[in-house]
């Protein structure tokens, strides 16, 4: 048993680091899915876009600019998705899928017609901090430090932003668009702002993951929307109610827990390719269980009636 605990302990840093990087996408979905009530299916492509842009700019020798460029690219992608759904009459799910498809080609183009960009010898924020910390007791923790800093910055931003008038309007847009209009605010505008901000975080996450693993490939974002949604819904279980900050922290916690459970499952010889099936099942269950609970009284009544008929 102590062996088992020691094993878990060994898994923790890796899971924490990936969990924190993923948490940025989860926070993006917290904004778009939970707050704005839009299921943004361009998330996968946008994540890859962030990885691609971040990798190319880092390759050109600008490690800090790469992060800003990735976020700007994500914003642009969010702008396109929201424009399609608010100004061109395209259903929001379809808008996401269309942009996702288009982004595949865009991402290949950005990576100079290649599906893989190698960052092995490239200077990134990770390598910079690694050098800075050389010889100190934090030497091994540079990845977690960078991921934590970004997660904390995004949480601070969200807990400020979602309490401003603009943030309230964005939340109301997901809650009751008619009421937003009654407050003389155009819900199209709030949707556009919300999706731009959310996609900036998605792309940031992609950028950090690529720089962390020292490569960006065209598949890096595949299935990300489901993985992030699973994490978000796990987070809801822990801290799903209350103030916005609390729920945002819950989203991060969900991402870390998800990665940790996944790491443990891998340790017990679950094939790595199962990640997506597991996240798909989690999303299904997380949405189905509350639904089933809400329907349970009806189902019970139906069963009783059926039983009654048999008795008669």
């Amino acid at each position: 048993m102590p062996d088992f605990l020691a094993e878990l302990f060994k898994l923790a840093p890796g899971a924490l680091e990936l969990g924190l990087i993923n948490a940025l996408v989860v926070l993006a979905l917290f904004l778009s899915y939970t707050m704005l009530n839009v299921c943004d299916l361009s998330t996968d492509g946008c994540f890859t876009l962030g990885a691609a842009v971040g990798a190319m700019v880092a390759l050109s020798g600008h490690p800090f600019l790469s992060i800003i460029a990735a976020m700007a690219a994500g914003m642009l992608s969010g702008l396109v998705v929201s424009f399609l759904q608010t100004k061109m009459g395209i259903n929001s799910l379809l808008a996401g899928i269309i942009v996702n498809t288009g982004l595949y080609s865009v991402n290949i183009l950005i990576m100079k017609n290649s599906s893989l960009v190698n960052l092995n010898k490239t200077e990134t924020v990770f390598t910079l901090l690694k050098e800075k910390l050389k010889g100190t007791f934090l030497e091994g923790s540079y990845r977690i430090i960078i991921a934590s800093v970004f997660v904390i910055l995004v949480i601070l931003f969200l807990s400020f932003f979602l309490r401003t008038r603009l943030g309230l309007a964005i939340r109301a847009t997901g809650n009751n668009p008619a009421m937003v209009k009654a407050s003389s605010i155009n819900p199209a505008f709030t949707t556009i702002v919300g999706l731009c901000v959310a996609n900036a975080f998605t792309a940031l996450s992609g950028c950090l993951l690529a720089q962390n693993q020292k490569s960006a490939n065209i598949d890096i974002g595949n299935g990300m929307v489901t993985v992030a949604l699973a994490s978000l819904l796990i987070g809801n279980v822990f801290l799903g109610k209350g103030k916005v900050t609390r729920r945002a922290i819950g989203a991060v916690l969900g991402a870390v827990v998800f990665r940790f459970v996944y790491a443990v499952a891998l340790r017990f010889n679950m094939p790595a390719s199962m990640l997506k099936l597991v996240s798909a099942v989690i999303v299904i269950l997380a949405i189905f269980i509350p639904y089933a609970a809400s329907q349970s009284s009806q189902v019970k009544r139906r069963m009783e009636l059926k039983g009654g008929r048999k008795d008669a």
Partner: peptide
């Protein structure tokens, strides 16, 4: 139809009052 159920009374009123800039808080 007139209010956002997931938001607090004061948050609803803030939007209705519509005072201050986009980044102002209650």
């Amino acid at each position: 139809l007139g209010s956002a159920p997931g938001m607090s009374i004061e948050e609803n009123l803030t939007l209705a009052a519509g005072k201050g800039g986009w980044f102002s808080r209650i």
